[in-house]
Write a protein that binds this DNA or RNA. Structure first.
Lengths: 260, 260
DNA sequence: TTTTTTGTTTCACTATACGAAAAAAGCGAA
DNA sequence: TTCGCTTTTTTCGTATAGTGAAACAAAAAA
């Protein structure tokens, strides 16, 4: 057992996989070793083991990348995720209406991550990854989730959160955030003003499974140059309405898991 | 190192994940321990470690299931897979034309696995899982891939293959299979006649990246009661044409990886 | 061709992963 | 609510499995 109480070599293997997924392409043992701070021989051994089960594959050029075995696992995860299925038609409509990148975020009471997206046909848009975790207090989707949480859950989150500058616009204190969350509660949608990525603004609204039970969010991301300040309220309303629609669909099933 | 030369605990963790993905739902430590033949304490320890990274999650009822972290890995794998993107419009057309379940199979020179599917709107259809491996010599898609391989690759595969009855209709000898592959080469598509699943027939045709370079296959699965024997040739032609179309798209990119 | 870099193998060492057994928790029936 | 059974979690002594420095091999760059 490692210091944190987990199986050390397993944690190391997971770190290797995460690094490779982040790279999102072919890479070599030396790069992985540097990215994970592990000895090359250890990385090599982990890759050999993962390679036997197609969790990683080695290309003709010797480079390693994530392999097909993970598809089977993710298919299992997806099969249990009702939210993306229910939400997809709504997301599609919002995408058609906005012609911007639309994301669906799931929140399980602990972690929020992107589970679906429809990308803007514009050449310039927000980069994101399905499965990537998002920071609750710096993203529009995350903020809308925070705004809908129970007070004790929000306090618990805020007590753990670290506030640091990511761009010139990042909100940096707990007080600023709490004021913002009050505002979000009034409007029904949250926003993000170039705080995670220069040039990108987002508007997001939480999907609920009952009062104070956020299970995700829907958001629209737009390059700042394409968003007129005067358009924010109507866009916010559209996002809010989409989230409400999905929340209604969720109510109809009463089977989605999430929240605490 | 284990007997096979891999990291034992890592292999055990992968076995746990595969078992859970196969179960495709919530399950407990005792079930996983039985399904993987590992001691319960070992399973518990593996799950604790995987749980810390959201690779598995524990529900309110204490049951364990695959968690969201695998989405990030599979997003990386998918981003590198050009075939599903290129093939999707073609698959959709075939699906619209047949109204039956259409699968896209990828083949990397070693393993074939489902990477996309569009399911039949009929209530009765073939069950399959994205990411699941398929047996090359017992499936229509697999056979069409075998038929297009280089002779030495086919021999290598056949030397390793085990022939065993899965249903009453399973082809059980190497000779039978080789004769069948000759026929498939003439027609351009392979078929499967209730050999994997009673009541399910499939027709499949290989997608090529050049002569003797199969990189996947497209297939249509139909409950036997819905397939008239006289319809097989026209359906086979449609599947073959779809595969040819995808092969052309692949030629246009010259970037897809696969084959040896 | 030579040098540098990356990937692979070896092997002595020790701490990490182990699993039987005990303890705790959960569940269902009476 | 109590009790018996089942499942999950924890404990802890131990040995073997995972380790990484170093050597070697292969590949890439100069």
């Amino acid at each position: 057992m490692s210091e944190n109480g987990g199986i050390r070599v397993l944690e190391r293997a997971l770190a290797v996989l995460d690094h490779m997924a982040r790279i999102n392409g072919r890479t070599g043992i030396t790069d992985i070793a540097e990215g994970t701070d592990l000895p090359k021989a250890t990385v090599h051994r982990i890759l050999q083991t993962l390679g036997r089960k197609n969790v990683v594959v080695q290309g003709d050029d010797g480079g390693y990348s994530i392999g097909p075995a993970v598809l089977f696992w993710s298919d299992s995860f997806r099969a249990r995720s009702v939210l993306p299925h229910l939400a997809h038609p709504v997301i599609k409509k919002l995408w058609e209406a906005t012609k911007e990148t639309v994301h669906l975020t799931a929140y399980d009471g602990d972690t929020a991550y992107y589970v679906d997206k429809l990308e803007s046909p514009h050449p310039v848009g927000m980069r994101s990854r399905i499965g990537a975790e998002l920071c609750l207090h710096t993203t529009a989707a995350g903020r809308s989730i925070l705004a809908e949480m129970k007070k004790e859950d929000l306090d618990s989150y805020l007590n753990k959160a670290t506030f640091e500058k990511k761009t010139a616009s990042t909100i940096a204190t707990r007080e600023e955030l709490e004021a913002l969350l009050d505002d979000i509660r009034l409007r029904g949608y949250g926003w993000e003003n170039q705080e995670n990525e220069e040039g990108i603004r987002c508007i997001g609204s939480a999907i609920l499974r009952g009062r104070h039970r956020p299970i995700g969010a829907i958001s629209v991301s737009i390059p700042a140059y394409r968003l007129d300040e005067g358009d924010v309220p109507s866009l916010g309303e559209a996002v809010k309405k989409a989230a409400e629609r999905i929340s209604q669909l969720i109510d109809g099933t009463d089977q989605v898991e999430g929240g605490r």
